[in-house]
C-alpha cells in the first residue's frame, strides 16, 4: 500500500475522520461491517426460516423491522443481506480495478497501435449506458448474485482502464522508468515494480469512489430480477418483493431500502473524503 506508506495509517485515519460527513459515514460503515461479520450471532432469527412470525406482521419489539409475506423476520434478513451486499460490492470493485488497471497499464506501456486500438475500444464501451452494459452481460452470464457482481464489475472496467492509462502515460515518461529501462529491467518488472506502486494511490481512490456505486448497481440488478434470486436474503431482491405488498406492509420495502441507502451513503462519504486526501486532483472534477 504505497498510498498509505506516504502517510502513516494513524494520520490517514485521523484525517479521514476530519469532516462531520466522513465521521458520520465511518460510524455507519463500522456498524454495518460489524453487523455483517457477526450477523449469525446477532440476528434474532434464521433469515430464511419461514413462519417465525405472523405473515406481514408490523414492526414490534419481537420483530423490530416487521415480517415479510412468508413470515420471515425482516431484521434478520437485512442483517444477513449486508454480508451479501458488502461482499458483492467488494468483489465487483475488485474485478473492475484489477482488470481495469492491468488493461490501462499495459496499453499505455506498449503504446503505439495497441494503445490507439485499445483506447478506441474502451471509448466505444464507455458509450454504452452503464446499466445497459451490465444487463447485456447478465444476458450472457445468466441471472444470479455472483453473475450480477461479475456483470457490474466487467461494465466498470473501461472507465478504470481509461483513467489508469492516462495516469500511466504520465509515468512512462519519467526518469525512474527510463533508468529502469537503461539498467535492463524486463518490461514485466518495470510494470510490476515501478509503475504499479506509483499507480496505487489513484487506483485506491477510484476503488473507494466506485464501491458505493457497485453496491447500488448490484442491488438494482437484483431488484430487476437479474441478480440475487429469492429466497436469498438480499436487499434489492427484498425491495422487489416488498413492492408488491407496500399497501399493506410498507415496512417490507422501507427497511431494506434504508439499509441499502445507509450502506451506499456511508461508503460514498468515506470514499469521497479518502479521495480528497489521497488525490486532491481527482476530487476537483465536480
Amino acid at each position: 500500500m504505497t498510498a498509505t506508506a506516504i502517510m502513516p495509517p494513524r494520520r490517514l485515519i485521523a484525517r479521514t475522520l476530519g469532516t462531520p460527513g466522513a465521521l458520520a459515514g465511518s460510524i455507519i460503515l463500522v456498524v454495518l461491517v460489524f453487523g455483517a461479520i457477526f450477523a449469525p450471532l446477532i440476528s434474532p432469527y434464521d433469515p430464511n426460516a419461514t413462519r417465525v412470525c405472523p405473515r406481514l406482521a408490523a414492526p414490534s419489539l419481537d420483530y423490530v423491522f416487521g415480517c415479510d409475506l412468508f413470515g420471515r423476520d425482516i431484521f434478520s434478513r437485512i442483517l444477513h443481506g449486508s454480508r451479501l451486499s458488502l461482499a458483492v460490492g467488494l468483489l465487483t470493485v475488485a474485478i473492475s480495478l484489477i482488470a481495469g488497471t492491468l488493461i490501462g497499464m499495459v496499453i499505455a506501456f506498449l503504446g503505439g497501435r495497441v494503445d490507439r486500438i485499445g483506447v478506441r475500444l474502451l471509448d466505444v464501451m464507455l458509450g454504452f449506458p452503464a446499466i445497459v452494459l451490465a444487463i447485456l452481460i447478465v444476458a450472457v452470464l445468466g441471472v444470479g448474485a455472483f453473475n450480477a457482481a461479475l456483470a457490474v464489475g466487467i461494465s466498470g472496467i473501461p472507465r478504470i482502464a481509461r483513467v489508469v492509462r492516462s495516469a500511466t502515460l504520465t509515468l512512462v515518461g519519467r526518469e525512474f522508468v527510463d533508468s529502469a529501462r537503461a539498467v535492463g529491467a524486463s518490461q514485466a518488472r518495470i510494470l510490476r515494480r515501478h509503475l504499479l506502486p506509483n499507480l496505487m494511490p489513484i487506483v485506491i481512490v477510484l476503488g473507494s469512489l466506485d464501491l458505493g456505486t457497485a453496491i447500488l448497481s448490484t442491488a438494482t440488478l437484483s431488484f430487476l430480477g437479474l441478480g440475487a434470486q429469492p429466497p436469498q436474503a438480499e436487499w434489492g431482491a427484498m425491495l422487489s418483493a416488498g413492492r408488491e405488498f407496500m399497501r399493506y406492509a410498507p415496512w417490507t420495502m422501507i427497511f431494506p431500502g434504508l439499509a441499502l441507502f445507509l450502506a451506499v451513503m456511508s461508503v460514498n462519504l468515506v470514499g469521497d473524503r479518502l479521495s480528497h486526501i489521497l488525490d486532491p486532483r481527482a476530487s476537483k472534477h465536480d
Binding site: 442491488a219 425491495l239 420495502m253 431500502g257 460514498n268
Partner: peptide, 8 residues
C-alpha cells in the same frame, strides 16, 4: 442524494 436507490 447520489446514494439514494431510485427504486426505493
Amino acid at each position: 442524494g447520489v446514494s439514494l436507490p431510485s427504486f426505493w
